[in-house]
Design a protein around this nucleic acid. Sequence first.
DNA 1: TAATTAATGATAGTATTACTATTATATTTG
DNA 2: CAAATATAATAGTAATACTATCATTAATTA
Lengths: 228, 228
Amino acid sequence: MDQLLQSVTIRINDKLYVKDPESSELGKRIVTESIAMIVDIGFESFTFRKLGIKIGSNESSVYRYFENKHKLLLYLTSWYWGWLEYQLVFATNSIADPSERLKRAIQVVTRTIEEDSAFSHINEILLNKIVINEYSKSYLTKEVDAENKDGYFVIYKRLVNRISAMIKAVNNEYEYPLSLASTVLEGSLHQHFLKDHFTSLTDCRENVDPTEYFIQLVFNTLTLDNNG
Amino acid sequence: MDQLLQSVTIRINDKLYVKDPESSELGKRIVTESIAMIVDIGFESFTFRKLGIKIGSNESSVYRYFENKHKLLLYLTSWYWGWLEYQLVFATNSIADPSERLKRAIQVVTRTIEEDSAFSHINEILLNKIVINEYSKSYLTKEVDAENKDGYFVIYKRLVNRISAMIKAVNNEYEYPLSLASTVLEGSLHQHFLKDHFTSLTDCRENVDPTEYFIQLVFNTLTLDNNG
DNA sequence: TAATTAATGATAGTATTACTATTATATTTG
DNA sequence: CAAATATAATAGTAATACTATCATTAATTA
């Protein structure tokens, strides 16, 4: 798997950057170090000026890669969803049974990311933390509709649709496959967040991943569908 | 009900304001107009300077009520959750049967807010929009833990706990009552958001409230619990 | 009613942010 | 080696998120 993954590149909407950060060493450093820095100080405190200093480069150079930090966040989170989509497809591809397949899919998207595949300049453990803590901020804006139209969220949408399709494959009568898929993805981020900051609002904790909770939720719903 | 509600005041943690906005006309205007303005231009673009101009008052006067816009957001959203908690308690209080009670609770917390109770300077329809679009930003910060310790989220936590207790009353064996309660609350905001901006990611739409989806989700899970 | 206090308004000022613009200096490539 | 390209350095701007000071007005109470 590692070998295969090495040759896979995640294609990001090119409107999200000014110059492709994958195209140069500086670009990669910008990506690598922005991830570390956003995890470290949070998206609100993160600035291109600070990043420039950290990478021993210049603020203006960072602007040559990304228009602003919002676009950078969209770039990073798109990368993450693309990476997760790959994990999902890879892990479920060979499974014929729809229920087993869906179960595996939920495992992949709700588990705690604990190892960095280390095949690129992007650390997935850190990036996962960014997604948990900052992803909502990328779409809870006045510009969502325009940005959505421009395709900034395509990867995420494709991922939700894949899960939704797997749900339908298990139970074609079920009325809310899209809502259920989006609930699992979003809800998983939320449960991970609660586990770290609001332990009194979740039953997930060390060694109790959201995975089991979501698998049970999804399969019970699909088993006993349209009553209420 | 209206009469009763008029005499109820929602107690907000007094660390969230410098001077109680309920204590003066200016304070109330700040609250009323900040709600309208945040709905209108979004939390990011909203500033105390703009608010001052809108209410024909001064930036510095606004600062005498709220330390900064983050605290104002916490104040507004706390008020909303307090109001919703009241709705919940009021609506479920007289229901003895645990399942009926839980069903009613889910209805109350997931429905679209369509009428303003008009007993105060706070418009709940608008405030609900703020909660949908901005609530996450109030806790997805580097300061959550400290602010949580200071009790800034108590009302929300109490609300989740109430729902969790109702879940347990229906099925005491169920392993994830807190996660399920937090999923319903958060997930409901999310489905409402998707309905407005990402229609391809939800099955909720006009006349299909998240309510039915969540009722089915919760009851199916509680009926068939610990398999997987 | 005058005096006091409290609330609000006006103005100014600061550090930081989120950029844009310009010019200089490296580095790469033809 | 020349030309093109990428990066660095510096400066500058408008806006934000405040703080501080002082003036004015309104409300309270001695």
